[in-house]
Design a binder for these strands. Structure first.
Lengths: 243, 243
DNA sequence: CGATGGTTTGAGTGTTTTCAAAGAACGTGG
DNA sequence: CCACGTTCTTTGAAAACACTCAAACCATCG
């Protein structure tokens, strides 16, 4: 992902209107939630910081901005009518998000941890004919990456069992974070469950089982996982139970 | 989807090398299967007919072509190592498919029924700077549609139960085929099951249950479904059991 | 008309979910 | 710095749902 070629970078302080998002709270209509992306800058990009669990934009709001994670992590999610939540993707440092085809955002975006993002004006079809350092191919590439990721996600959700799902998830995160064998999970069990189509209990049980098998280690410190046996984890992710 | 603006349309006869795809056959490596897309035409598009179950291109082969369904239906699928098959999407008349970002196709494409497709030279990033009637925005739009469809699919696979999955599927197909209340399923129960992340038995049971509830009707003629109560079907697709 | 292959139905099993409670880490205030 | 309450996580037991195996059914095709 290209991260250079920025016209203007300004780090804004933590905004004052957090309004955190709680999934277990009574579900409200996305349109009721004001987008936190207030500043409108033409042809420039700004940096902005979001606190843990702060909403970046809501499902259903007009897509006027897209963004790139600089530090931290962002979760894209959507709600079904009865309150069930599906997490579509986690975006880590370097990832673009919020590129839409339609008028409105199809997912809510929330900062999972304290996060800084680079915000770009507008997002979508009007980017294609754009020339210059950030139009065209970069957007197309980001979009294609989203597509491939969504397709892989569908494969995981449709055809894999709990152990395979969790293994695949850990492996993928380890590769993207690239911090050696110890990975710091930015997200909670609830987030992982909603991403993998499982319950928090099943996620927890799968992790415990992987630990019992000596494939990973779960230190006391919450939100950390140590990879003990990467080949075995890779096999677990693809369905080979034993070897 | 735009279907106009075609430089040259030539209908080729049924090709002579069918080599049909059987999912229950011993899984072979995709790369071993020759792509049926032999003809190479520069900047033109040709029409070509494929028989029921004939492969259009294989997962893993170099993506030199993309295509648009003219009549019939195409299924995009991928195989896991142990033979499990996931169907990513069904493409109906008008849909584009085979647009890839990387060098190789990520999915196999097969004609579900006798199908004619329009084949375009190349597919992917090199299409973006293209000007003219078929470059740029049309490809971008097709890609975006694939993305949204993949995201919806992930939501379905991750958060919905069997009855909801099957209801959603029927509803979606009815809207896309737009043939009133009677829809002719081009695909088998096996295909539906692999698309919805279920088994054929569960698909069958869900259909029977929807019929018993008076929401749909399953005529004797195989592969047909009659929608009796669309609002109820819509509710069933979104989780409301009773009303 | 009989053979074939896809579909439906049935019974039993297994994995995941649900419900419930205990356990452990983190933040706050004393 | 420790104690406490809160929240997240883990564990357990029972139930639900979808799966597996198996057989019957019935369109379609030769």
């Amino acid at each position: 992902m290209q991260s250079a070629s920025v016209i203007q970078d300004t780090v804004l302080p933590w905004p004052s209107l957090p309004r955190t998002y709680d999934p277990r709270q009574a579900p409200h209509h996305p349109r009721d939630i004001p987008s936190a992306l207030a500043p409108r800058v033409a042809n420039k990009c700004i940096m902005r910081a979001f606190k843990r669990d702060q909403q970046i934009f809501a499902e259903g709001v007009v897509a006027e901005f897209s963004a790139q994670v600089v530090t931290g992590a962002v979760r894209m999610s959507t709600l079904l009518g009865d309150g069930r939540r599906q997490i579509d993707a986690f975006h880590l440092a370097g990832d673009f998000f919020g590129i839409e085809s339609g008028r409105e955002h199809r997912f809510s975006a929330d900062a999972i941890v304290n996060t800084t993002i680079r915000i770009y004006r507008s997002s979508g079809l009007d980017w294609i004919p754009a020339d210059g350092q950030f139009g065209g191919k970069a957007v197309f590439a980001a979009l294609v990456q989203s597509l491939e990721s969504a397709q892989d996600h569908a494969l995981l959700l449709g055809k894999k069992c709990a152990r395979e799902k969790v293994s695949t998830f850990i492996l993928n995160l380890a590769e993207r974070l690239a911090t050696g064998n110890t990975i710091e999970l930015p997200m909670s069990r609830m987030d992982i469950a909603d991403y993998l189509g499982l319950t928090i209990e099943t996620v927890s049980r799968s992790l415990t089982q992987l630990q019992r098998d000596g494939i990973i280690d779960l230190p006391c410190r919450r939100g950390a996982i140590v990879l003990k046996n990467r080949p075995a984890l890779r096999r677990a992710a693809n369905g080979n139970q034993g070897f």
